[in-house]
Structure formats: structure tokens, C-alpha cells
């Protein structure tokens, strides 16, 4: 049976681009992969790989995700217990944090210790949102990570965000970019990865990242 990748649909934005990018990469790899965009906890509970996208505000996304019956529990079981490879994208990455402070304080999934706080670039001339292609630099932990090692260190990815993830444990910070200070570009531990940038919008670099995620066997 073909491997099944579930993209969690909780009403937060543009899932089609993520699905299309994954399908393109799977095709290039000659990989039989069924990509399912789903709001069903049952589907998530049996998926081989999971992607949690996210566009918008942290609190709204967290609430929308929790509004899906059984979804948070299904994700926890599948990711934390069964160890299915998981990728959070943009706000989907930020939701991995314990807490987000966009429009009030909101509880995240708490899978990676840290908080999501507003970008405050040291250089006051820098605009927020950070809306740019920025070089993604691997940390020593990232350089040793099997899903990140194949990527060009310093390759450029497309970022659009006003808040950023500040991990409590530096060992879980896998890549950074600079925007008037250090910004977490990739966080992760075990079978969990989260990226602040949009791989589905980052042309060759983004597709290379998704290819690497599909080939990753944590």
C-alpha cells in the first residue's frame, strides 16, 4: 500500500500549495505517496507522515486546530507515541511551542520547549513582517540532522512572519536566519521538525527540503 501523508486541514490557509509541492517532490523521487488533505482525526491517526501547515495568527490557529474533534489527541498519539515523521510549517511550526503571545497568550502543542514572541529587530529600520528570502544557516545540531544535512547551508528560503519561535533548548534549534537578530528557521527533536519559512514557496531550496523530509526516517 502506498505511503500516506496527511496534511492537517484546520481552515488555516493555503494547503493546496503544500499538497502540490509534496506531490511534485514525491513524483520526482518516483515515490508512491498518497497525499491527503484532511480534517479527520481518524485519518491523522493512521497517516505515515504528517504536515501541519498554518497561516494567520497563533491563537486563532491553535483554537481552530482544537476545534477539530479529537485532532490534538490523534496528533499526540501519532507523533509523540508512534513517532510518525512530522513537519510543522510557519504557524504550524510555531504551534509546537508551549505558548504564543500573538493577540494575547495562547497555549501551543508544547512539543518543543519555547515561546513564540513578536519579532523585534535590533535595527529599528527593519520592517515587520519579515517578508524576504533569507539564508538558512544550519546550527551544529542541524548540520548533524539527517533531514537537514543534504541541504545547502546558507540556501535561501522565503519567510513571511511577524512572530518567531524562541526555543528554550539550544540543542533543538537546527537552523537560523538573521533578521535584526537571530531567528529560528528550523526547530526539531526526534521525529519532529518545524520550519518557519515556506518550503512550498521557496523554489528549488524548498523542494529540496521537502524531498529530504520525505526521505527522512527518524
Amino acid at each position: 500500500m502506498a505511503e500516506r501523508l496527511a496534511i492537517v486541514d484546520y481552515g488555516a490557509g493555503n494547503l493546496r500549495s503544500v499538497a502540490k509541492a509534496i506531490e511534485t517532490v514525491a513524483r520526482d523521487l518516483g515515490r508512491e505517496l498518497q497525499v491527503i488533505v484532511t480534517a479527520s482525526a481518524d485519518t491523522v491517526a493512521t497517516a505515515d507522515r504528517l504536515i501541519l501547515p498554518g497561516v494567520g495568527a497563533f491563537g486563532q490557529c491553535a483554537a481552530a486546530l482544537r476545534a477539530l474533534p479529537g485532532m490534538e489527541e490523534a496528533l499526540e498519539r501519532r507523533v509523540l507515541e508512534d513517532k510518525a515523521p512530522f513537519l510543522g510549517v510557519c504557524v504550524g511550526m510555531q504551534l509546537l511551542a508551549r505558548r504564543g503571545s500573538e493577540h494575547g497568550s495562547h497555549r501551543g502543542l508544547g512539543w518543543i520547549a519555547g515561546d513564540v514572541v513578536r519579532l523585534e529587530p535590533a535595527d529599528a529600520k527593519l520592517k515587520v513582517p519579515h517578508m524576504a528570502w533569507s539564508p538558512v544557516r544550519l546550527t551544529p545540531a542541524g548540520g548533524a540532522h539527517p533531514a537537514l544535512r543534504p541541504l545547502d547551508d546558507g540556501g535561501q528560503a522565503y519567510f513571511v512572519h511577524s512572530f518567531h519561535f524562541v526555543p528554550a533548548d539550544r540543542a533543538q534549534l537546527l537552523a537560523t536566519c538573521e533578521y535584526g537578530g537571530e531567528v529560528a528557521a528550523v526547530v526539531g527533536r526526534d521525529n519532529i521538525l518545524g520550519v518557519q519559512f515556506h518550503p512550498e514557496k521557496s523554489q528549488a531550496y524548498g523542494l529540496a527540503f521537502l524531498r529530504s523530509f520525505l526521505e527522512w526516517k527518524p
Binding site: 490557509g13 497561516v55 494567520g56 495568527a57 504557524v91 513582517p129 517578508m131 513571511v160 512572519h161 511577524s162
Partner: peptide
């Protein structure tokens, strides 16, 4: 902006 996020 509230509904879809500032960034878009």
C-alpha cells in the same frame, strides 16, 4: 487581517 493574518 484578523481573519487571514496580517501577512497576506
Amino acid at each position: 487581517a484578523q481573519r487571514f493574518g496580517d501577512q497576506c
